[in-house]
Amino acid sequence: MSLPETDPPPGDAPSDNGTPAADEPHPLHRRLKSFVRRAGRTTDGQARAFAELGPLFLLPYRAEPIDLAATFGREARTVLEIGFGMGEATAHIAALMPETNFLCCEVHEPGVGALLKRIGEQGLANIRICAHDAVEVLDHMLQPDTLDGVHVFFPDPWHKKRHNKRRLLQGPFVAKLAAHLKPGGYLHCATDWQPYAEQILDVLEHEPLLRNTATDASGYAPKPDYRPLTKFENRGIKLGHGVWDVVFERR
């Protein structure tokens, strides 16, 4: 499929939603889908990480529920991350929260290799990677009411108005995420594109299973301490771009 002509997003853009050609219906209108396959070259270091660490940390997709305790080798809180890009934030957070398990979905092969490389370099044991569509992982591998958190950081903003319908965080997908959270579990989204932040806030506020944790009248949350400033975010801040965090809890 050909990529539509769009300006590059202002910040991070992990592979998180579909890329139909400009005259094709959006995947959300055909079949809910969480990713876009992007071109990229796997480096020698990433290839070595695949070979050496893939058998330990890659979780093959299968269309049946998994036992999270068996998958991670322990009973622990589990957070799902969707579209981790090159894994910089993922590895940082996993190192800060060794008591938490992180199940991470990303279909971009260089990104998967980069996170595997970080796992080896930092000695992380609490990450498992499923290189598959997060929607199918939610539908078939994860039971409802099993996740303690979901992270969706800097999804592709599709900032041209005619492409807004391609954004990942829309009602059907948010409902799916909410149903997989335990009561008290959280959904944390972050974006550096204000119109997308406004849409995310609106969609989450209309999901009956969720409630906003923000105390500020704007509805946006302060950046949680665990989320690092990535190099892209730092660059954006220097250019005067804002960043918006939205944190909701399952009722």
Rank of each mutant, 00 (worst) to 15 (best):
P65V: 15
E106L: 00
C105F: 04
H140L: 09
G87Y: 07
N126E: 08
L96V: 02
E88G: 00
L68D: 12
F72Y: 12
T146V: 13
C130M: 14
D156P: 11
F154K: 11
E88P: 00
T100S: 02
T100Y: 02
L68A: 12
N126V: 03
F154Q: 15
V107L: 00
E81Y: 05
C104V: 12
H132I: 15
G85F: 13
E88Q: 01
A76F: 04
V135D: 11
D156Y: 11
C130L: 11
A69N: 11
E88K: 00
I119H: 03
A134H: 12
I119Q: 04
V107M: 01
A131K: 10
G87F: 03
L103T: 05
K160F: 08
D139Q: 10
L124F: 09
K117F: 07
C130H: 10
N101P: 00
P157V: 13
L142D: 15
T78G: 00
L68S: 09
T71G: 04
L124I: 14
C130S: 13
V150A: 07
V112M: 13
H132V: 14
G85C: 14
L138I: 09
G113A: 01
R118H: 10
V150W: 04
F102W: 06
H140F: 14
L103R: 03
M97E: 06
Q122F: 06
